[in-house]
């Protein structure tokens, strides 16, 4: 299997699906000739043309609202929001419209669409190019939220997301685009939504993460292994629907749980995971469920993030966005 970067896997996932299904369109800011500011859509415009790869004006609500309408009328849009930080103008279209369309029409209508957006810090993006926005959307019934952490999962989950009949928010950690490589098969495969992966087996502690934090959790688990601590690591991969059973099975085995997330600590997605573990695995716990998360400030301090959530083990192999 060839090794590919995270962003290559995403690009390949889109291209493969577009070849397979003529109803898929890609739309967003700079997604055409330029191929996106991170180059996630590079080459798609050349291959699929103006009709299927659409450069939009700087209008996030329009990108999402138009995608909803296009999905109603038979297309499968894959919208790109240039940075997750800029998704907020589309909040109403996502929360009031995309999430509720099926429910409010009693299954008369649906909007199968994917919204891709780079999130996360560590690339000198400061307050408005670093945010983790997943908790706003995992809160909303009717939306699915996916955050892959490996190239293999990114391609396989993107395929499942595009083929899903409901709106999926697909958040990609921008620091991982070129720093993370992994094996990606050329053929067609899918990673199902709603299934976590146990990425490291252990017996004394369950560490739960997603996105970049799934990598940091693994690295940390390796480090503490030298001290004789056996940590099991779970990469959630899909945040909603949550693979609750994988989480609970692990915690029931280890008796301790640490939830790691990059977002602000207060009210973050990990708080929900912690609450579920506390409610449903209480009898198995021999210590409090603990969260390790970003500080409750608006954005990671820049340009020197070390000391905050990005005080990371290992070499910093980041590549900057355009």
């Amino acid at each position: 299997m060839p090794a590919k970067t995270f962003i290559e896997a995403i690009r390949e996932g889109m291209a493969d699906e577009m070849r397979h299904d003529g109803s898929i369109i890609v739309l967003g800011e700079d997604v055409g000739k330029k191929g996106g500011v991170f180059l996630a859509t590079d080459g798609l415009w050349a291959e699929f043309g103006d009709d299927r790869v659409i450069d939009t004006p700087l209008t996030e609500s329009q990108i999402i609202g138009t995608s909803i309408g296009a999905a109603i009328n038979g297309l499968r849009p894959v919208a790109e929001i240039q940075f997750a930080d800029f998704i907020h103008p589309a909040f109403n279209q996502l929360v009031s419209e995309a999430a509720r369309l099926r429910y409010r029409s009693n299954n008369g209508y649906s909007c199968p669409m994917v919204v891709r957006a780079p999130y996360g810090g560590g690339v000198h993006g400061a307050l408005y190019h670093s945010q983790s926005v997943e908790a706003f959307f995992t809160h909303v019934p009717g939306l699915k939220v996916v955050i892959p952490s490996t190239p293999y999962d990114a391609k396989g989950l993107l395929r499942s997301s595009i083929r899903d009949d409901d709106p999926v928010l697909f958040f990609e950690h921008k620091k991982m685009y070129r720093s993370v490589r992994g094996e990606v098969p050329d053929g067609e495969y899918a990673v199902p939504l709603g299934r976590a992966a146990v990425t490291r087996a252990g017996t004394q502690l369950t560490v739960i993460g997603y996105g970049l934090m799934a990598h940091y959790a693994l690295e940390a688990a390796e480090r503490v292994a030298d001290d004789g601590i056996s940590a099991e690591v779970i990469d959630l991969r899909t945040l909603r629907p949550l693979d609750k059973e994988s989480v609970l099975d692990s915690v029931r085995k280890t008796g301790k749980c640490l939830v790691v997330y990059e977002d602000n600590r207060f009210g973050g997605y990990g708080a929900e995971v912690a609450a579920i573990v506390a409610e449903e695995a209480f009898d198995y716990l021999d210590g409090p469920v603990t969260r390790m998360a970003g500080p409750d400030v608006p954005g990671v301090l820049q340009p020197r993030p070390r000391g905050l959530v990005h005080d990371q083990p290992g070499e910093d192999r980041r590549r900057d966005p355009d």
Binding site: G65, T66, I68, G69, I72, N73, P77, Q93
Partner: peptide, 8 residues
């Protein structure tokens, strides 16, 4: 926006 998406 939905009507415009439908038109698209």
């Amino acid at each position: 926006l939905h009507a415009i998406g439908i038109a698209l």
